[in-house]
């Protein structure tokens, strides 16, 4: 059986809220290392990969591998019934028909319980190769969100170019062009505002802004975001969570004909 207690229901609420517009039905794969999810969006150009490690829960118990097939809209309806500060416990039997969610208020004796019916989801699982990326950019998640939203006002696509001088986000559209360039930057007092660019070789790739703006819905999960790029492979956008858990998005690049 599965029994996993999260100190803050808000974490799962934010994760599901961030991905529910990209993927609708998906399996939450539970085993002794934690709860994982991998799903492609409908158009198959983006991939969501979430890992909530066992250490993110206390306690965490999962005796055998269980796939919980859940409709994210349904899950979101139930998660909205939780207060942000509530403690959340996920429970399921070994061959479950439902997943049980229990919300406990840390301040009162209120206890709410919900069951969500599970679905059989036949999902292909993709192997993501370990990649030494040519450029890894760590930056404030709010800054990345702002850049994507700003450039989307002008264009459908953004070119991301990382060089030793910095990282340039540029676009061109019907009304004109736009570009934002960031250089490495260290803020001793507010390290969350740092911009770090680790580069082994220059990279230039183009991506659909619609997807990037969608990924940025995860900005509330982490103050920083990591962008990993190599020529001709999907972009990795990673939001790190406590205890080495993460929410990752992969996006196939746009390639000129």
């Amino acid at each position: 059986m599965l029994e996993a207690r999260l100190e803050q229901a808000n974490l799962l609420k934010k994760v599901v809220d961030a991905i529910k517009d990209l993927v609708q039905d998906c399996n939450f794969d539970c085993n002794d290392s934690g709860v994982a999810l991998q799903a492609m969006d409908n158009s198959h150009v983006a991939l969501v990969s979430m890992m909530l490690k066992a250490e993110s829960f206390s306690p965490f118990r999962c005796d055998r591998n269980i796939a919980l097939g859940i409709n994210l809209t349904s899950l979101m309806k139930v998660l909205r019934c939780a207060q942000n500060e509530d403690i959340l416990t996920l429970k399921a039997e070994d061959a479950p028909d439902v997943v049980n969610l229990v919300f406990e208020s840390s301040e009162s004796d209120r206890l709410s319980e919900y069951d969500i019916k599970l679905m059989d989801i036949d999902q292909e699982h993709l192997g993501i190769p370990e990649t030494e990326y040519a450029a890894t950019i760590t930056m404030p998640s709010a800054e990345f969100q702002r850049i994507c939203r700003d450039l989307m006002a002008l264009s459908e696509s953004v070119a991301i170019e990382a060089t030793k001088d910095g990282v340039k986000f540029s676009c061109s559209g019907d009304i004109g062009n736009g570009a934002v360039t960031l250089r490495s930057h260290t803020n001793v007092e507010k390290p969350d505002l740092n911009v770090e660019i680790a580069l082994s070789e220059p990279v230039a790739l183009t991506f659909s802004l619609k997807y990037l703006v969608n990924f940025c819905k995860a900005s509330g999960l982490s103050s920083t975001v990591k962008l990993c790029l190599s020529n001709e492979v999907p972009l990795l956008v990673e939001y790190g969570l406590a205890s080495n858990s993460y929410l990752r998005f992969y996006l196939a690049p746009k390639i000129g004909d």
Binding site: H44, G127, I128, T206, P234, A252, I255
Partner: peptide
């Protein structure tokens, strides 16, 4: 003039 290949082009079936 852009082509966007599916993500399965890059990541194979596990």
């Amino acid at each position: 003039p852009f082509h966007q290949a599916p993500i399965t082009t890059y990541f194979c079936d596990a």
